[in-house]
Design a protein around this nucleic acid. Structure first.
Lengths: 220, 220
DNA sequence: CATCCATTTTAAGTATCCTTAATTAGACTA
DNA sequence: TAGTCTAATTAAGGATACTTAAAATGGATG
């Protein structure tokens, strides 16, 4: 199945929303893709006709297995490009996203394979997101959880969700990276804000930001 | 001036034809770009209206200064991508061309700058073609000449024109590279074929192939 | 349960870049 | 110089991916 870069982007967006347990509604899609809601309806009708999505009027969109495979392969492109740009050009985590988004739709299978090989067939990109293999299969995953749902103790950052410009700025400015060690000192009952220690620096982050930082428990 | 990737490709094609002293006629353009002659006429009228090319019915196209600048910046993208893919992924000279062609139109100025910096601001790509700077200015060039127009003696390869699949295959198969030392032993009067020695291997190449190998004279 | 409002859809239309088929222009030849 | 042939142009149209504006829907609320 060979699809345009617009279709790849559309399916990838549904997939990413599903992953975060958000509905792929028209307005959601429109704002993520930065196009009008009417364009979403158009595309939805077209892709439903091709068996790539399940779509009923006024309902949110879900992927069919066929559509999901394309979405996974599009994610693969995206994440391999991100990893490649990070390793070679040393771009930071929000820069790699923007640039990968521009190029990924025009990448040949051949080039992608070379990039994969160069990188040593990585299983995760620099955000910690898993990279599907060339058949669209995701690597085995441990269960990670948001630091905002944890109790005091030591954790390692496993994934960072760069979901908005504000989060980009925050994670970039304070240099949050996958692999960093966090100590959750306490949770404020008032607003569920988190007092954390990282590199000997103590800071308070909101519950909302905490929900975008997935961690694993460190044995002590 | 911000133009689409199709327009960049169009202008770059005219530029490349001009460089090789070939006319940018409709049929020439159509075969280089692999689109119909009617599409060439369409695009020509449009771009003439934007002051990017000089165009009169039934005459061949030339670039205006404005169009030439865009063509040079498009060449810059192409050649920086080629150089980057060659250095990082070790793709060979015909592979880098194909892949760069696909991606180049979707590259941001930011990313291009990072690639340029990573490569150390190179002045030539792996084919030996000059890379314009970010203002579209070409580096100072020595005068190179085709080996087919030289007399017996020692030369260094300065540029290789990968102009057709056959030439791709030839240069790739026999591993011709910019920087190689060639000794031109003799020229057959019969058909102007060239007897050359390279890495202690002697071979005969046609005048046509010789015209695609630019060299500089080595002092002995 | 009727009303309201946000969301979604429909309808119509635009831009870009391409196609095929038919026509015309210009260059070359006899 | 008329005729011929090739290259280029015109005309019509199609695919894709969007837009705006108006209409419809359906879920939430009083």
């Amino acid at each position: 199945m060979d699809v345009s870069s617009a279709v790849e982007k559309f399916l990838k967006t549904i997939y990413n929303l599903e992953l975060r347990h958000q509905k792929a509604s028209g307005s959601n899609m429109a704002s993520k893709l930065n196009i009008s809601p009417a364009a979403i309806t158009d595309m939805a009708i077209k892709l439903a006709g091709q068996g790539l999505i399940n779509y009923q009027k006024h309902k949110s969109i879900t992927l069919t297995p066929k559509g999901k495979k394309i979405a996974l392969l599009a994610s693969r492109k995206h994440r391999l490009w991100e990893t490649f740009l990070h390793r070679t050009l040393n771009l930071n985590l929000d820069e790699i996203h923007v640039e990968a988004e521009l190029i990924e739709g025009y990448t040949s299978e051949f080039l992608l394979g070379k990039i994969d090989e160069y990188l040593g067939f990585p299983e995760h990109d620099p955000h910690g997101d898993p990279i599907p293999d060339k058949k669209g299969v995701l690597p085995e995953e441990q269960a990670f959880f948001p630091i905002s749902e944890s109790s005091p103790g030591s954790y390692q950052i496993e994934r960072l969700y760069f979901e908005s410009d504000e989060l980009n700025d925050f994670f970039t400015e304070y240099e949050f990276k996958v692999g960093d060690i966090l100590e959750l000192v306490l949770i404020f009952k008032m607003d569920n804000a988190l007092l954390i220690k990282r590199n000997k620096v103590t800071m308070v982050i909101s519950e909302n930001i905490g929900s975008k930082i997935l961690v694993s428990k460190l044995n002590e």
